[in-house]
Design a binder for these strands. Structure first.
Lengths: 200, 200
DNA sequence: CAAGTTTTGTACCGACCTATCCATAATCAA
DNA sequence: TTGATTATGGATAGGTCGGTACAAAACTTG
């Protein structure tokens, strides 16, 4: 039909994702996005309507892949419910203390949490995406926790939904702690104590 | 000696604080700060060296007042250690669900958490202020928790320091949850379950 | 090859950004 | 009243912002 693209859209989204993730939405300029993706302004604006549209695409991609990975762990029927929760926490700890650490040894945090802080209050579209994602994760978390309550491995008598929100909040708290400089051992102990609330 | 100021510096700092708190550092323009404080650009730049300097002053003021209020609760010798922790959580719940809610019913969050997410990685001075504040709060939290362990009201055998980091992370998680739209009951149940980890 | 279509690079736009300059106003000390 | 000093308002500088216009390039189809 016509001249084909010389770049891969998903790769561009990944590059943009890293930039938004590290710097935040406001602090990322369109020039930063050109540099990160290696694309010219025309290619970016020809492919995405605007900086904000690109960000929405990035956020959707991030949320999908991140939640998919978490749900894969939570729905792994080869493990017990408690083991799945432990594996979820291990993912978070690894993610925050992996190869890509920021200058000063801080974790990258999570684009979901970062966007909740920076944009949720004044960007309804971003807020809606985050809400949907949170509900999705909470639903599965509640199911896993309910299963653990039924098989006796989770001894807390609290409502499964409340425990799910607690686990979700604990993960967010771990990510904030990591961005605040907490090391791997500190994050792991927060995860361990979070599990205490369910099993002790 | 010379012409006196016609405004109160602390009031200006409070007005600027609300703006940075609601919009974040990057999204707040110097014009926003003029509007919020009612001052002209000259007065702002004559009183504070720059937008960033003003932000540092704001952050210092916020951190001091916020932590002072929390430490007052944590060091209230009329209460038992567990009661102090419950009162601390009540402060957080009230703060996130008080009169000042954002459009969409979301909590304001906490300038400390917001700044950790937005700036800690690339603003060493802000990061240092946040670090000092976190250490200060963790020290007192650990002391209270240790006291509770000695008097038997906190039954967890985990290290007091680890429990302190856990409580700190839980509070951050509650603030993120609030900004994500969690209501008062949801926040309270997260607080309750957090206490379970210490006392159950 | 030629016509048609899309991508790409470059130059550019107006708006807004942080910050400064400077003239004027307001105060105090003498 | 006068001189020194600081505060204030308005204009503006210099740069960057997100976004666009346009022509050349690169491809497909006939």
């Amino acid at each position: 039909m016509a001249r084909p693209r010389t770049f891969d859209e998903d790769s561009a989204l990944d590059a943009a994702m890293r930039t938004f993730w590290e710097k935040g939405y406001e602090a990322t300029s369109t020039q930063d996005l050109c540099d990160a993706t290696g694309l010219g302004r025309s290619s970016i604006y020809n492919t995405f309507k605007s900086k904000h549209d690109l960000f929405e695409r990035v956020l959707a991609r991030y949320v999908d892949s991140m939640t998919a990975a978490q749900l894969a762990v939570l729905e792994d029927i080869r493990r017990t419910p408690v083991d799945r929760l432990r594996a979820l926490f291990a993912m978070v700890v690894d993610g925050e203390t992996g190869a890509e650490r920021r200058p000063g040894g801080r974790g990258l945090g999570c684009l979901t949490v970062n966007t909740t802080v920076e944009l949720a209050a004044r960007d309804p579209r971003a807020a809606e995406m985050l809400d949907r994602d949170t509900r999705r994760r909470l639903t599965v978390l509640r199911a896993v926790i309910g299963e653990g309550q039924r098989d006796g491995s989770i001894t807390s008598r609290r409502e499964a939904g409340a425990l799910a929100r607690f686990v979700n909040a604990a993960i967010a708290g771990m990510r904030i702690s990591s961005q605040g400089g907490a090391d791997r051992a500190a994050l792991q102990s927060v995860a361990d104590i979070t599990m205490d609330a369910l099993t002790a």
